[in-house]
Each structure stands twice: as structure tokens, then as C-alpha cells.
Simulated scan of single mutants.
Amino acid sequence: MKSFTSLQLAQSPNAQQLEANLAAKYEELRAHDMQVVERINDTLAAKLNDAAQPVIDDWKSKASPISDEILDTFDKNP
């Protein structure tokens, strides 16, 4: 099985297509007078991160050796 670095995955055409699709969906929602919140406040983000940490730790214990790299890339791309 071929292995990819997280940077390669983040720069892949699929990631670029995902961003384009998401932007299009946001525009569609806004065109229908819906408010799109792209950022949440730091307090809520901290609470969500704390709640998710046990699940993340469990996943890391079962995932491949590149799990830290995957999470680092995720953390750098809010």
C-alpha cells in the first residue's frame, strides 16, 4: 500500500476539490439568506477539543504510525 505524507494529502486535487465544493455550498446557503459561521469562539472550541480528546487518544492508540502527522496537518488547517 502506498503511503502519503499529510502535506501531500492536504495539497492533493481531492483536498482542493473539497475546498471548492465547501465554498460553493457556503455561497448557496448565503444566497438563501442563511448565516454561515465559519469560526467558533475560543471557549467553545476548547470545550469541544476537551470532549474529543479521549476519542482522539483512543484512535491514536489504534492508528498507524503516521497518526501524529495526520493530526498535526489537521490542526494546521482550521
Score class of each variant (00 low, 15 high):
Thr43Glu: 14
Ser67Ala: 13
Gln16Ile: 04
Ala10Gly: 04
Phe74Arg: 13
Asp57Leu: 01
Lys47Gln: 13
Ala46Trp: 10
Ser64Pro: 11
Lys60Thr: 04
Ala52His: 13
Glu69Phe: 09
Leu9Met: 11
Gln8Cys: 02
Leu9Lys: 06
Ala24Tyr: 12
Gln35Trp: 05
Ser3Glu: 04
Arg30Leu: 07
Thr73Lys: 04
Gln17Cys: 02
Thr73Met: 08
Thr43Ala: 15
Ile56Arg: 10
Thr43Tyr: 06
Gln17Asp: 10
Ser64Thr: 15
Gln16Leu: 07
Tyr26Met: 08
Lys2Asp: 04
Met34Gln: 15
Gln35Ile: 07
Phe74Ile: 15
Asn14Phe: 15
Ala52Thr: 09
Leu7Trp: 04
Ala15Gly: 08
Ala10Trp: 01
Ser3Leu: 08
Asn49Glu: 12
Ala15His: 07
Gln11Asp: 15
Glu28Val: 08
Leu22Gln: 10
Ile66Leu: 08
Pro65Arg: 06
Gln8Ser: 00
Leu18Ala: 15
Lys47Glu: 06
Gln16Asn: 04
Gln17Leu: 05
Asn49Tyr: 10
Gln17Ser: 07
Pro78Glu: 11
Leu18Trp: 14
Ser64Asp: 15
Thr43Lys: 05
Val37Asp: 14
Lys62Gln: 10
Asn41Phe: 08
Ala52Gln: 15
Ala23Met: 11
Glu38Cys: 00
Lys47Phe: 03
Arg30Thr: 10
Ile66Arg: 05
Ala20Asp: 04
Arg39Gln: 14
Asp50Phe: 12
Arg30Ser: 11
Asn21Gln: 14
Asp68Asn: 14
Lys60Phe: 03
Phe74Ala: 13
Lys25Gln: 11
Pro65Val: 09
Met34Lys: 10
Asp75Gly: 02
Ala10Ser: 08
Ser67Met: 02
Asp72Ser: 08
Ala63Phe: 03
Glu38Ser: 03
Gln16Lys: 12
Ala46Gln: 15
Thr5Asp: 00
Leu22Met: 01
Thr73Val: 05
Lys76Asp: 12
Ala23Pro: 04
Asn21Asp: 11
Pro13Leu: 10
Asp68Cys: 11
Ser61Gly: 00
Glu38Thr: 12
Ser3Asn: 00
Gln11His: 03
Ser12Tyr: 02
Ala31Met: 02
Ala46Tyr: 12
Gln16Glu: 02
His32Cys: 00
Thr5Pro: 00
Asp75Ile: 02
Pro13Tyr: 03
Ala23Arg: 14
Leu18His: 12
Leu29Lys: 10
Asn49Gly: 06
Ala31Ile: 02
Ser6Asn: 02
Asp33Trp: 06
Gln11Gly: 09
Lys47Leu: 01
Ala52Tyr: 11
Ser61Lys: 02
Leu29Arg: 09
Leu22Val: 09
Asp58Phe: 09
Ala46Pro: 05
Glu27Phe: 02
Asn41Leu: 03
Asp58Val: 04
Asp42Gln: 09
Gln8Ile: 03
Asp50Lys: 15
Ser3Gly: 00
Ala51Met: 03
Pro54Ile: 07
Ala23Asn: 14
Met1Tyr: 09
Ala63Ser: 10
Ser12Met: 08
Asn14Asp: 14
Asn49Val: 03
Leu44Asp: 02
Leu71Ser: 11
Val55Ile: 06
Asp72Cys: 01
Phe74Ser: 10
Asn21Val: 02
Ser6Ala: 15
Ser6Val: 05
Ile40Ala: 07
Val36Asp: 06
Val37Ile: 13
Glu19Leu: 07
Ala45Asn: 13
Ile40Thr: 01
